[in-house]
């Protein structure tokens, strides 16, 4: 994609009928780190890879609770997601206040779809630069929607957005039947983390610092798990780094996992550096 005469604002069509500003907005999403959502019909799970600007900095929050029965995962410009999530929270509260019932997920997403579309047809504002995965449980069941700044909203059984999300999508397509027949939240979370792991680049692995897990469903309010709470699911994975990148190191990683698990359970306040140090030490010993 390169600069051209038709990409100054979102009120200009290109000669081939494209809206470049909207397409550029979609690019902004691809710059954000990955988020994956899957649903089994009775529960929806959202997992996301958090990023930090520098080693000692905090990680950007990727999952936001909208109401007891609904939440979103974002990829792209986080401030835009904040604006949209505040709007959704207002809508959800309004539904409870006026109708005494929780907001239907379908109504919520169609509402932000129309809101986002306005920004693509009027002068003066830019399209939202964030993609959202909206997960909710309402009287019609568990739903997962993908929201794009173009105003397009589609309902999915499994979706992934952000950097290298295509790998996650491939995992989801391959395991769709297994996912749809999950009966336990734990199984679903493990699938989600596996898909998320496939988006990792070389030398990256899922840790309790950079992974965020959330779920909602039948008899379960929308809950977000971060930091130590995430360890319980990381322990269930074969590996926290991307197998395709570390084809040679698979065995070592398998051996390290349980050890790290018990270690970190005890010293939960140790920063990531110490964990990696421990892993390096273990490597040397087994080698």
């Amino acid at each position: 994609m390169f600069r051209n005469n038709y990409d100054n604002d979102s009120v200009t069509y290109s000669p081939t009928g494209r809206l470049f500003q909207v397409e550029y907005a979609l690019e902004a999403i691809k710059q954000g780190s990955a988020a994956v959502g899957i649903t089994s019909g009775s529960h929806v799970v959202l997992v996301a890879l958090k990023r930090n600007a520098e080693e000692l900095g905090s990680y950007q929050k990727k999952i936001i609770k909208v109401d007891d029965h609904m939440g979103i995962a974002l990829a792209g410009l986080a401030p835009d997601a904040r604006v949209l999530s505040n709007y959704l929270r207002k809508l959800a509260m309004n539904s409870k206040l006026v109708f005494n019932r929780p907001l239907l997920t379908s109504k919520a997403v169609l509402s932000i779809a129309d809101k986002a579309q306005e920004n693509t047809q009027l002068y003066g504002s830019r399209p939202y630069g964030v993609g959202l995965l909206v997960a909710g449980w309402d009287e019609t069941g568990a739903h997962l929607y993908e929201f794009q700044p173009s105003g397009s909203v589609l309902e999915y059984n499994g979706a992934a957005i952000g950097a290298r999300s295509q790998a996650a999508r491939t995992y989801l397509e391959r395991n769709l039947d297994a996912i749809r027949s999950c009966t336990e939240i734990e199984e679903l979370v493990v699938h989600g983390l596996n898909a998320l792991r496939d988006t990792l680049s070389q030398d990256m692995e899922l840790t309790i610092q950079n992974t965020s897990v959330s779920f909602v469903g039948k008899d379960k309010d929308f809950t977000i798990h971060d930091n130590e709470d995430v360890q319980q699911w990381l322990d269930k994975l074969d590996s926290t780094s991307n197998d395709k990148n570390n084809a040679n190191d698979d065995e070592d990683d398998d051996n390290d996992e349980p050890a790290e698990g018990t270690a970190t359970a005890a010293d939960s306040t140790q920063p990531e550096l110490t964990q990696e140090g421990a892993a390096a030490d273990d490597n040397m010993e087994t080698d």
Binding site: F99, N100, R101, S106, T140
Partner: peptide, 20 residues
Amino acid sequence: YDSDGGHNLRAPHVHEYLSR
């Protein structure tokens, strides 16, 4: 409008709306 089915307006909702 935009209904995929499976949900409808029931008495508690109508009452809350009217009382507002």
